[in-house]
């Protein structure tokens, strides 16, 4: 899953982006309201972490602009302003969740996973496909109850397919959600990753739908 992290404190942004990448998210960062406004409308992010006190404006105004443009982007507000009035203003502006600074890393990850799962229409609990299960809280993928050994990139691809299943995910869409903004996108790499995943998750299958993309399937006997 790909995130937009809007935070003007460079050190915090770098550190938090590192935390999120280690949790297998693709993370783009920006430090101003203007950048955030544009990126949120153009790029297909799965969620946004939005700081409110930005150097060129208020994060709530950015959020209001997104909502005015009918954007349904899940937004987690991350702010040092945590009065009840700030909470109300955040949700009234269209935020999906609100977290006060300082925060625990695992709390941010948990909230993001919950946001993404909700935006995909998922109910509470793990996301399951046959023997495969994605713990929506930790982001961990298991196979028949056992942790699945995956590389970070494999985990990104598989989590996205799990969240989107049973829909077909095009290669373009998949690359949009697993690659960061400034990364070279390579469909061949995705093909390689998908091939490796097919071996690791059998009997579950990643079906190739000709001319459309990939679809995760529980496989025979499901």
């Amino acid at each position: 899953m790909r995130l937009l992290l809007v935070e003007d404190e460079t050190s915090l942004a770098e550190e938090l982006a590192g935390v999120l990448r280690r949790a297998d998210f693709a993370v783009d960062t920006c430090a101003t309201a203007a950048e955030a406004r544009e990126a949120g409308l153009i790029e297909p992010y799965d969620a946004v972490i939005l700081d409110l006190g930005l150097p060129d404006g208020n994060g709530l105004d950015v959020l209001a602009d997104w909502r005015a443009q009918k954007s349904l982007l899940p937004v987690l507000i991350l702010t040092a302003h945590d009065r009840f009035a700030d909470l109300v203003a955040g949700f009234r502006a269209g935020a999906d969740d609100f977290l006060a600074k300082p925060f625990r890393n695992e709390e941010v990850v948990l909230r993001l996973m919950a946001l993404i799962r909700r935006s995909a229409g998922g109910a509470q609990g793990p996301i399951v496909c046959g023997d495969l299960a994605l713990d929506a809280a930790s982001g961990e993928v298991t196979m028949s109850g056992l942790p699945l050994k995956l590389t970070a990139f494999e985990r990104r691809v598989l989590r996205y397919l799990l969240i989107k299943q049973p829909a077909v995910v095009s290669r373009t869409e998949l690359s949009d959600h697993v690659y960061e903004r400034d990364t070279d996108r390579n469909f061949n790499s995705i093909e390689v990753i998908v091939s490796r995943l097919r071996r690791k998750i059998a009997p579950c299958q990643i079906e190739t739908v000709r001319g459309e993309g990939y679809r995760l399937d529980a496989g025979h006997g499901d």
Binding site: A80, K101, R104, E106
Partner: peptide, 14 residues
Amino acid sequence: KTPLALLAARFGTG
């Protein structure tokens, strides 16, 4: 709170 958030992120899980 922002410097504390940086500390929490750097020294926290992940």
